[in-house]
Nucleic acid binder design. Structure first.
Lengths: 195, 195
DNA sequence: ACCAGTATAGGCAGTCACTGCCAAATGGCA
DNA sequence: TGCCATTTGGCAGTGACTGCCTATACTGGT
């Protein structure tokens, strides 16, 4: 959006702050680290940390890549098969991640599932974003769309939890894809065709 | 579980505290009411409020009916068609609610969706309970079960949100049932058969 | 009814997340 | 370089939440 010098400095500071925060949280635990310590480690004032992130949990949750744009969303998911579009968007999104990005995400996910307070904030964040997507896409059948996006967020959360619990051994897109397929086809057939 | 005098007094106090809290939150707003005010209105000490409820959000979320018992759950949902069992349990649960219970639930739901902080705590609570259920039921196909319960919580949340947004005009079981049916049969067919 | 022993409530003091408010500094621009 | 808009930092305050200790109320046996 904005590419002025101020904005770039702000983003750099946010990355520095987040990095310092993750280091400290991993070392000493989320509850044991005060914002003041994070601010000191990142060489900014505590007040600035709050201005940038708004809450302690956001230090872990924040991701600079997920700014969304309702117009583009409607173009992307407004077609005949929005689930296929969603799957494709997810595949592209995961494929675009470099090794560094993935490493950072793993650190964040680990912390998110270690501390329920962070998880709660994360879930709410996910729901708010998906409701925005649903509002941009959904027309008549609002109820179905709402149920789907909430269920999808739940599914992604379950997939992420599984990914983390299994030591990040499975490629993450594969898990999300399996979850999405379950939502797509329903949960009935599962019992009829055991492995 | 325990039916001693202490336990009954504690439950009575919890109901009194929750009732006072809902009154105050509705009148003045969740953020504007301090725990101290709730404690004063319910004639207990603030320390006791924390001991009973653990957090301010729990004053709204808490429901005395949802104590769960892993053994019974396994017996109930361990059969061939756990989704049908779940639907039947939901139907029975909603049918068992009296007019008073329903009124209380409406007040709580209204507050939950008015204040994101409460919603976040509620969602997390729902996930934790459903993971407990899933652990009690699920065997081999843990991933599918986990995805289902998370999606189901999301679906119920969407249904509750819809219920609240529509002024509680639809019977709640009907909405939950529709959400469950969507999960059961999948979201593909929706686009193929417009209303 | 009484008297241990035990569980529970209340009070106190402290920590820390988070928020306005105002002054200082810093980038944007003529 | 000098002016203006935005941003940062410090300060003080509020309130959620937590140990710790004492007082009180319940419980089970006599």
């Amino acid at each position: 959006m904005d590419h002025g010098l101020q904005h770039r400095k702000k983003l750099a500071a946010m990355h520095r702050i987040q990095s310092a925060a993750l280091d400290l949280f991993e070392e000493q635990g989320f509850d044991e680290v005060a914002i003041e310590a994070v601010a000191a480690a990142a060489e900014v004032s505590p007040r600035t940390v709050y201005r940038y992130f708004g809450s302690k949990e956001m230090l872990v949750i924040w991701d600079d890549e997920d700014e969304l744009d309702p117009g583009a969303l409607n173009a992307e998911f407004g077609g005949d098969d929005p689930i296929a579009a969603l799957r494709e968007a997810l595949r592209a999104g995961f494929a675009a991640l470099g090794e560094d990005d993935l490493l950072l995400i793993r650190r964040r996910v680990t912390l998110i599932y270690r501390y329920p307070a962070i998880e709660a904030a994360m879930i709410l964040h996910g729901y708010e974003k998906s409701r925005a997507i649903a509002a941009a896409v959904g027309g008549e059948d609002a109820f179905e769309v709402q149920v789907f996006v909430h269920a999808f967020v739940g599914g992604v959360l379950a997939a992420m939890r599984d990914w983390c619990a299994a030591g990040f051994s499975t490629p993450p897109f594969e898990l999300v894809d399996r979850a999405l397929t379950l939502l797509e086809h329903g949960f009935t057939r599962k019992r009829a065709t055991p492995s």
